[in-house]
Design a protein around this nucleic acid. Structure first.
Length: 815
RNA sequence: GCGCCAGUGACGGAAUUGGCAUACGUAUACGAUUCAGGGUCGUAGUUCUGCGGGUUCGACUCCCGCCUGGCGCACCA
């Protein structure tokens, strides 16, 4: 049995706290390293494996960096506003504030038990007025900069949560949280103009040390598309409309146009005899759920409006249809249909017997059956016939531009960020609505707009705050007349879009943060958290950072220079852990049985950090054994020191041990840097095995080397098993704390072996292994190998065509 | 449907500027132990990288096609 247990954890946690070992020293800001893990939602349940898997390994990385001499800033906080607490309140009657604060207390205690290197003086909690005051300030700044605006929009409405959802929170037409089908509803909502930054958000990705996959997701999400806008006139009318297209080269092939059913001009152009049909279709489209509307397998439908449009390039008259496969929210809400060269238009035209006109042919020999959607050579396109699709695109747009009927245009899939929620548990939007003065921002000095405690928040589709008289009624700061506060609260992603700026200056009561100080402390050097935030939180945080930079509050462009996503730990059965499946692993049970370090080590050793994988109980026992073995070798050293004197000999065995020690230092340093904790720990195990071997094989030991190697092992282990390593360090009789020791450096000369073993291949197949002095020349190696007793017989009667010698690795003999 | 990533012993996983495949651990077997069980210590094996082809002296690694799994996007004009 190991002497390590959770008692050791408690002992060192107390000592660390008493000695303030993890106090962040502001004077060393020149050596700062901001290591941030995504803060967590204070849930009622205990810390789950996911929390440990995020915070444990990240903490080890941070400790590793501290030992390398960095002044590590690793804060901890809580993303404390949001729906779960409110839903819980609706169900149980416990006020969100009460449950949230209690949960935070719980989680703080549990996080302490993990043994993280956290300076808790920098803690922040987003639902406390001293934090959300500044969330409101950020909103006001965005408003003043013209980046926050209100508009009526068809929004995603979850009838179960009774709230508006952002596009990102709708998954396959259903509410991300509760799975209920999402409906459309028209409401006046607050938006943040993230689209103003679309291009910079896209281009900035190139220089970030982020997982390629995540960058790709953001690129897709932003969805930059370059093309042209083309203006069509409605026949017999003054009405004009624009379409967006990426295939201006197919303009001669337009045989009809389609408007989204929601498009405003539909009612203006529809001929009387088609009104009934069109209205019916619009109603039906409105009733459709997102699922039906967006399903790509669904057959395309539409109705004719009776109106015609004039193609600006050839003055052809084409019918105007409406169809729900055209999205009101993308481009201009209208498309020009080229059935010959677009699959959707082709399907639609076939169904409704609309003409199909080829204007592109394939290159010689290419199959160009319709619909032919690739680039080719323009045909039937007047003076543009014969041009390549690429050339025709630009030439046609240039012509349109010259007659003022179109121009090059870039579109984005990214939409503005909808931030208002008809919910209680969030930061109130600091805006006042006055009948006389309209929208009036709350003056900065009046912040925070406090969230009242006694509010009826049962959902009925209205903002709970609207029903709270003492909150909603106020006076207009401009005219002094009676006015109402904005009844909505901010999306919690607003809270988390700037929290990393607040951490280093969390106690500042005068400003959200001090610009000079934050410019020194940021950007975050290493950001660690789940991949599920790739398109929301990470994009919003980048946007807010850029906006604040443009207002002069920051001098850097990107908040997170380097990003790592941890994988997911699955249940022992390989499925996602869940209570209902009964495959959840409770960290607490393991902590009390084995101690925090065993649990943390197992999480680092048993998986590739970014991959994750299925839990296994056997793995944790292996780690327990590993620590036990270290404990025993430390005891063994004490014994040896008492019993015998050290030999000064440095022979083969000593060189070998020294080699493995330096090999371990080198690789652990490199691997830990890259979050490859599993291989780092494997190298420690090898080093430990070498120590056991040395102890067993060698009678007269070089105890100094033996001790030095053990000390190195404990030092290297410290970031991974902090409590245990402190205990061992103390047992070895060294001065507190092991975390004040410098991370060891390896001696390159110790890694050069006198003799190396080369693999000998004949025609690429390994036939033998031969020891060769490492300084032997290639030509000598060749001679030596060919004459060696293992190889020579194999070459009898054969001609050696070629010998390839790869120094230090292998020799390949080609026959 | 499109895009990206992955597929390695019984298992978790290592090794990709092409160079001794399976480090480390688990499980298994055998041996040792003042060895009941358990623990501890030591030793051992796992014809070979999803499938088929190609390039090469040499391919887990590069190229082409396919299969399987995961993730993302999904009428974006």
């Amino acid at each position: 049995m190991s002497s390590y247990s959770k008692l050791i954890d408690e002992k060192w946690q107390k000592i660390w706290e008493d000695t303030r070992l993890y106090k962040f020293n502001k004077n060393n800001v020149d050596k700062k390293l901001y290591c941030l893990e995504m803060f967590s939602y204070p849930s009622a349940a205990k810390l789950h494996v996911g929390h440990w898997y995020n915070y444990g390994p990240s903490d080890s990385w941070a400790r590793f960096k501290k030992m390398q001499g960095y002044e590590v800033f690793q804060p901890m906080g809580f993303d404390a506003f949001g729906l779960p607490a409110e839903n819980y309140a609706i169900k149980t009657g416990v006020h969100p504030q009460d449950s949230t604060l209690k949960n935070i207390e719980n989680m703080e205690e549990q996080l302490h038990k993990m043994g993280g290197m956290v300076d808790w003086n920098y803690e922040l909690v987003t639902c406390k007025p001293e934090y959300y005051k500044w969330t409101q300030w950020v909103f006001l700044m965005l408003y003043k900069k013209g980046l926050a605006y209100r508009k009526e929009a068809p929004v995603n409405w979850c009838p179960s949560c009774n709230t508006v959802l952002a596009n990102e929170q709708v998954v396959e037409g259903a509410c991300e949280r509760c799975g209920t089908e999402v409906l459309k509803k028209n409401l006046t909502q607050w938006f943040l103009k993230i689209t103003d930054y679309a291009d910079e958000l896209l281009e900035g990705l190139d220089n970030l040390d982020w997982p390629e996959k995540t960058k790709m997701m953001q690129r897709n999400w932003i969805g930059k598309s370059t093309g042209a806008e083309v203006e069509f006139n409605v026949y017999d009318s003054d009405i004009k409309f624009k379409v967006f297209t990426t295939r201006a080269d197919t303009l001669y092939g337009v045989t009809y146009v389609v408007l989204a059913p929601e498009n405003k001009i539909v009612d203006m152009i529809t001929k009387d005899e088609y009104k009934e049909e069109v209205t019916k279709y619009q109603e039906a489209a409105k009733k459709q759920t997102e699922i039906e509307r967006l399903s790509s397998v669904k057959e395309k439908t539409g109705v004719f409006t009776g109106a015609y449009a004039i193609n600006p390039i050839n003055s052809e008259k084409v019918p105007i249809w409406i169809g729900d496969y055209v999205l009101a929210t993308y481009g201009t809400g209208c498309v020009m249909a080229v059935p010959a060269h677009d699959e959707r238009d082709f399907a639609f035209a076939t169904k409704y017997n609309l003409p199909i006109k080829r204007v592109v042919k394939g290159y010689t020999g290419e199959n160009d059956d319709l619909p032919f959607v690739k680039n080719g050579i323009s045909v039937n396109s007047s003076e543009f016939s014969g041009l390549s699709s690429e050339d025709a695109k630009s030439k046609i747009v240039e012509k349109l531009s010259s007659i003022d009927k179109g121009d090059f245009k870039t579109n984005y899939r990214l939409r503005d960020w909808l931030v208002s929620r008809q919910r209680y548990w969030g930061a109130p939007i600091p805006i006042i609505h006055c009948d006389k003065c309209g929208i009036v921002p709350v003056p900065e000095e009046d912040l925070p707009i406090s969230l009242p405690y006694n509010v009826e928040f049962t959902p009925d589709g209205k903002s709970p705050l609207a029903k709270c008289d003492e909150f909603i009624n106020t006076t207009c700061p401009k005219c002094g007349g009676p006015a109402k506060r904005d009844p909505d609260t901010l999306d919690t992603f607003v809270c988390s879009s700037w929290y990393f700026l607040r951490f280093p200056d969390n106690k500042n009561s005068k400003k959200a943060f001090d610009t000079d100080w934050i410019n020194q402390m940021l950007p975050v050097d290493k950001y660690i958290g789940g991949a599920e935030h790739a398109c929301m939180h990470l994009l919003y945080a980048r946007f807010v950072t850029k906006a604040l930079r443009d207002m002069g509050y920051l001098n850097f462009d990107e908040p997170f220079l380097s990003l790592v996503h941890q994988g997911t730990i699955l249940g022992p059965d390989g499925n996602k852990m869940s209570k209902s499946k009964g495959n959840a692993i409770s960290p607490d049970d393991y902590i009390s049985q084995y101690g925090a370090d065993v649990f943390r080590l197992y999480l680092m050793f048993g998986f590739s950090f970014i991959e994750g994988g299925a839990w296994s109980d056997d793995g944790i026992k292996a780690i327990d054994r590993f620590l036990d073995r270290i404990d025993r070798i430390v005891d063994r050293l004490q014994e040896l020191k008492k019993a015998s004197t050290s030999s000064k000999k440095v022979g083969t065995a000593e060189n070998e041990l020294n080699y493995i020690k330096n090999f371990a230092i080198k690789h652990i340093t490199e691997d830990t840097e890259k979050f490859q904790f599993n291989t780092s720990i494997a190298r420690m195990m090898e080093l430990l095995n070498a120590l056991y071997k040395y102890d067993q094989d060698i009678e007269e030991k070089n105890i100094e080397l033996f001790e030095d190697t053990i000390a190195t092992l404990v030092t290297i282990l410290a970031p991974f098993a902090p409590h245990f390593s402190e205990e061992m360090w103390q047992k070895l009789g060294y001065k507190y704390s092991v975390f004040n020791v410098c991370w060891p450096k390896y001696d390159p000369s110790a890694l050069i072996k006198d003799v190396v073993e080369l693999g000998i291949q004949i025609n690429g197949k390994i036939k033998a292994k031969i020891n060769i002095p490492s300084d032997m020349e290639n030509s000598d190696i060749e001679k030596f190998v060919l004459k060696s007793e293992k190889i020579e017989p194999l070459l009898q009667g054969k001609t050696v065509k070629k010998v390839i010698v790869i120094k230090g690795r292998l020799v390949n003999i080609v026959l």
